[in-house]
Design a protein around this nucleic acid. Structure first.
Lengths: 214, 214
DNA sequence: TAAGCGTTCCCCCGCTCGGGGGAGGCGGCT
DNA sequence: AGCCGCCTCCCCCGAGCGGGGGAACGCTTA
């Protein structure tokens, strides 16, 4: 197991290195103190796992993670944080990190975390997982309750990008009926036009990316 | 710690019960063999945590989870699965489950999982976490690359529901310029109107629900 | 019975939007 | 120098869209 440690604090690097080197067959092949050199070291050392601090002077850990992942490296990036701040977790996930854990984790769990990401799986610490789940479940309960059945039907068609005549054809009603429903939708959602209605549909979770794609 | 165990297999219920009862102060206050009775038992017993199997005859665990969460119960639902199938994890999260773990977990980890969800946090087993992260990171690389910088600016404003005059004001250009960019966007994205352009923006991951909210 | 709501349909009007042209300046590339 | 892509701005025009009315029918509820 080849590991690269990235943290601006030499003491933290030493501590992490001591923990990881205690595992037989594991070696720390490189260390870096900022994002730019981290990217360079990974390109050179071809590690299996990168332990990446978020907050660093110069290029931060998230940008470095993004560059490493986009470079096509096989290295799995495990992002480490000092505090349980949720604000970074979504950015880290989008950057392509394989995991997101507390820096101050018991050695056995840290080793286990490295093992997990090296195996191609992922993990988050519990507070982040809750945030992620809420991100999925949260918008669900915003149900746009004032809309009638038929209005919801029309809003679904609106969210597919159909014009009034097209919606009329699909729902087997006249264009005037569709216009009535659209007008009701605009009023109830307090928006000005169909585009804003579609945005509300997406933002509220009424429709989701990928919903209507065959 | 008050716990309800839901599984259609009595043997599994016994096994889980034995593990959980070994913790001092923990008690299994009810058991259920299907979703409907699970909802009833939870309503009656007011547990802290519900261990919920997914596959059950009659009402399945996901629907039961949804009903329990919507009922306003304080109980945290920990969904258990036999196989590492990802297909249920998103549904479970949307249903409001606090966690999603393998049924066949070592007793110490299972107890730890219960402790985590009881504390209001969440957890997923690693394969699911990977799926969740990919769900976040995946659409990211769809970049609508043909759009120029300025066109992307305009598309972002479009996706906020702004009219052409509003976009012109925000970008400090004339309405005619905005119209030019919008026309270019429509052509490049092969869509007919601004509404469809916004839909493409959402579906491609160019903008995401929650991105532009104050 | 009367009231209310949801669904369906109709008219007119004003306006933004989208499509068709075009034009000038600016920077990079060859 | 020439070319080309990007950004900027301008004209005309038609069609769809949004807003304002209204009206019929069936259904549930009071």
């Amino acid at each position: 197991m080849r590991i690269v440690i990235v943290d601006d604090d030499p003491l933290v690097r030493m501590g992490l290195g001591a923990i990881l080197r205690s595992e037989p067959g594991w070696e720390v092949v490189a260390e870096a103190g900022d994002g730019a050199s981290a990217v360079a070291e990974v390109r050179r050392a071809h590690p299996d796992v990168v332990l990446m601090d978020v907050r660093m002077p110069g290029m931060d850990g998230l940008e470095a993670t993004r560059l490493i992942v986009e470079s096509g490296s096989a290295a799995k990036v495990l992002v480490l944080t000092t505090f349980e701040v949720d604000e970074y977790v979504f950015d880290a996930m989008r950057a392509g990190a394989a995991g997101f854990v507390l820096k101050r984790l018991p050695p056995t769990e840290l080793i286990e975390a490295v093992r997990v990401v090296a195996a191609g799986e992922s993990l988050l610490f519990p507070a982040s997982t809750r945030a992620v789940i809420e991100r999925f479940a949260g918008p669900e309960d915003a149900e746009l309750p004032d809309l009638t059945e038929r209005e919801q039907d029309v809003l679904r068609e609106l969210a597919r990008g159909l014009s009034n005549p097209e919606i009329a054809a699909r729902l087997f009603v006249s264009v005037e009926t569709v216009k009535s429903h659209v007008a009701a939708i605009l009023t109830k959602l307090s928006v000005r036009d169909r585009t804003q209605a579609v945005i509300v549909a997406y933002e509220s979770g009424f429709v989701r990316p990928g919903d209507g794609i065959e």
